[in-house]
Amino acid sequence: MAFLPQERLVPLLTLLSDRMEVVAPILVEGVPVFASWSGQPLALKDNPLMPPQEFFLPQREVLFRYIQDCGSYSFEEAAGKARLIFGIRPCDLRALAVLDRIFGSDPMDQSYFDKRRSTVLVALNCNEPGENCFCDHLGFGPTCSEAVDLQLTEIDKGYLVESGSPAGILILKEHPEFFLETSQSHLLEKCEMLGQAREAMNSCIARSLPGIKEAIKKADWNALGRTCLNCGSCTFVCPVCHCFTIQDLGVPDGERMRCRDTCLLSGFSRMAGGANPRISQGDRMQNWYLDKFEYIPQRTGLLGCVGCGRCSRVCLAEMDRWSLEVKR
């Protein structure tokens, strides 16, 4: 545990960026995004719309290159690159924990774990919940409940830094000049901050796990399906959603690509002969919710929803994603 004074954060990141790509929330034309950081002003107020999941499971990535020679093939894989992600929030970290269990189940997904292993995660606990946030209602957050290399909590004049892994400890040990000793009061300050964040969250949104489960049970999926505009946005912004398809690009040499997919498209489950086990949009929406609140918990022991609220921000059909009530 250590204290990082406010003004030393950027110099520390600058130093670390000599060794690896530092990814942090920055502004692009005013829009907060996770992207390569090279000294731009940090945008730490809001969690970006797109979770940092894409640094482990990009929307499109090359699984391997195939090279044809005299009718046979050889393969090339790209190496993962060393990266530090600064500013990942507890909800998105929790989502990575779910993905770790899914992609780590036998046989392990090498492509995912190559990136996972070569990435240092520095989390930022949430002092101020976003307007759609409800992680606390799901039983975790707004502080990290998962192991993380380093976690930061903004307190007066700086950050309380807690390490949770050898990589995190190493950063504290290698760069002692940036950090100050912590005191009991820093910890108290952290607890107070996070308590306030919890309260703020609870007062603005009335959502609960039993409430959501009840809504899923009662929902009129056909009626909801009729208004869904098939945009897939809720699945693309979800830090837990990870459906993908695999596609080849190029002959005779080319790339086998892994591309982000969405279970809300009818082609997702349609078989080559044309039969489709999830034929209506309502079926597909129901499956999405059941996956998050029943199937993923069965598989991983963790909820498939982390309470980030992104899906309700992006719904083109203007649905209430949690009450699942049909408007008119």
């Binding site: 459906c243 695999i246 997919d261 086990p277």
Partner: peptide, 19 residues
């Protein structure tokens, strides 16, 4: 059972039948 599949190793989620 026949299902749409892409990864074959329980990751891509195309072939889900309930849980």
């Amino acid at each position: 059972m026949e299902r749409h599949m892409k990864c074959g190793v329980g990751k891509c989620e195309h072939c889900m039948i309930g849980p």
